[in-house]
Simulated assay, not measured.
Amino acid sequence: MTDKVSFGYEDVDPQEKTRRVGAVFSNVAAKYDVMNDAMSGGMHRLWKDRFVRRVKPQSGEAILDMAGGTGDIAFRMAARGAEVTVADINQDMLDVGIERAVERGLTGLTWSQQNAEVLSYPARMFDAYTIAFGIRNVTDIPAALKEAHRVLKIGGRFFCLEFSTTEWPGFKEAYDLYSHKLVPQIGKAIAGDEDSYRYLIESIRRFPTMPQFEGMIREAGFVNTRVEPIMGGLVAIHSGWKV
Rank of each mutant, 00 (worst) to 15 (best):
G22V: 13
V24W: 03
N27H: 05
N27I: 01
N27Y: 00
Y32K: 06
M35T: 00
N36R: 05
D37I: 02
A38G: 00
M39K: 00
M39C: 01
S40D: 02
G42Y: 06
R45W: 01
L46P: 00
L46H: 05
W47K: 02
W47M: 12
D49Q: 04
R53W: 02
R54C: 06
R54L: 07
V55G: 06
V55L: 11
K56G: 00
P57S: 07
S59V: 12
G60Q: 05
A62F: 13
I63G: 08
L64W: 03
M66E: 03
G68K: 06
G69S: 06
T70D: 09
G71W: 08
D72H: 10
A74S: 14
A74P: 06
R76S: 08
M77Y: 02
M77V: 10
A78N: 11
A78M: 13
A78V: 06
A79H: 10
G81C: 08
E83Y: 00
V84Y: 06
V84L: 01
T85S: 04
A87T: 11
I89S: 14
I89F: 15
I89R: 14
N90A: 09
M93E: 07
M93D: 05
D95R: 11
I98R: 15
V102C: 00
E103L: 12
R104I: 09
T107Y: 12
G108W: 04
T110G: 02
W111P: 00
Q113K: 15
Q113N: 11
Q113L: 10
Q113D: 00
Q113G: 04
Q113H: 04
E117F: 08
L119C: 11
L119R: 13
A123F: 10
A123S: 15
R124Q: 15
F126A: 10
A128W: 10
T130D: 04
A132P: 07
F133A: 06
G134I: 05
G134D: 09
I135P: 03
I135D: 05
R136F: 09
R136T: 05
R136P: 04
N137T: 06
N137C: 09
D140H: 14
P142L: 02
P142E: 07
A143Y: 03
A144L: 09
L145Y: 04
K146D: 01
A148L: 11
H149L: 03
H149T: 00
R150W: 11
R150L: 08
I154R: 14
I154N: 13
I154C: 10
I154K: 14
I154W: 12
